[in-house]
Lab assay of single mutants.
Amino acid sequence: EVTIKANLIFANGSTQTAEFKGTFEKATSEAYAYADTLKKDNGEYTVDVADKGYTLNAKFAG
C-alpha cells in the first residue's frame, strides 16, 4: 500500500491537502478523480508530479 498526497492549489490562493491510499494505480486514480469533482466550481487544473509520482500538485485555474 502506498499513499499519494494531493496538494490542491486554488485560484484564490487557498490550498487543501488530501491523501489517497491503496496500490499506486488506485491511489493515483482516486486523486485525479477527486480533482475532477472540484473542476465544476474551481475550473480546469494542471498537475505537476513530484516525489516520483507520490505527490501531485494540482493548480486550479479558477
Rank of each mutant, 00 (worst) to 15 (best):
E25R: 07
S14L: 13
E30N: 10
F24R: 06
N12S: 08
V49M: 08
Y32L: 14
N57M: 07
K39R: 12
G62D: 08
F24H: 05
I4P: 00
D41A: 12
E1I: 14
F24P: 05
N57F: 11
A35E: 01
E1N: 11
T17L: 10
I4A: 00
A61G: 11
A61Q: 14
E25P: 06
F10N: 02
Y45S: 01
E30V: 05
A58D: 05
E44S: 11
A50E: 12
G43V: 04
T37C: 14
V2C: 11
D51H: 04
V49F: 12
K5F: 10
K59S: 13
F60L: 00
G13A: 05
A35I: 15
D48W: 13
A11H: 09
Y32H: 06
G53N: 03
T55R: 03
Y54D: 04
G22F: 04
T3N: 05
A58N: 04
E19L: 14
A18L: 15
A6N: 03
N57Q: 05
T23N: 08
Q16W: 13
K39G: 06
K26F: 11
K5C: 11
A58P: 00
D41N: 10
A33R: 10
K21T: 13
K5G: 03
K5A: 06
E30M: 14
F20D: 01
I9E: 08
L56W: 09
A50G: 09
A58I: 15
N12K: 02
I9R: 06
S14K: 14
V49H: 07
E25L: 10
N12R: 00
A61T: 13
A61M: 13
I9Y: 13
D51R: 00
N7V: 14
F20P: 00
A6P: 01
Y54V: 05
A33V: 06
T17H: 11
E1K: 09
D41R: 08
A50N: 08
A27K: 00
Y34F: 12
T55M: 05
E30H: 07
A61K: 13
A35T: 07
A18I: 15
F60I: 01
F24Q: 05
V49K: 08
K5Q: 09
F60R: 00
N57L: 08
A11T: 08
T17N: 07
T46N: 06
F20C: 04
Y32A: 03
Q16G: 09
K52V: 06
D51T: 02
K39H: 04
A18M: 15
F10L: 10
T28G: 02
S14N: 12
E30D: 14
A6C: 15
D48C: 15
K59D: 05
T17W: 09
D41T: 12
E30F: 07
N42Q: 12
I9S: 08
I4G: 01
T17Y: 13
A27N: 02
D36V: 04
D48S: 13
T3W: 06
V2P: 03
A31P: 00
A11N: 08
N42C: 15
N7H: 12
N12G: 07
E44M: 10
A58R: 00
T3S: 08
K59G: 06
A35R: 00
T23Y: 07
E1W: 14
F24I: 08
K26M: 11
T15K: 11
A6I: 15
K59C: 13
K21Q: 10
A58Y: 15
G43P: 03
A27L: 00
A50T: 14
T46A: 08
N57G: 03
E1Q: 13
V49N: 05
F60W: 04
E30A: 14
G62F: 07
I9W: 10
Q16R: 11
K21N: 08
T17A: 08
K5M: 09
V49A: 07
S14G: 09
V49D: 04
N7T: 09
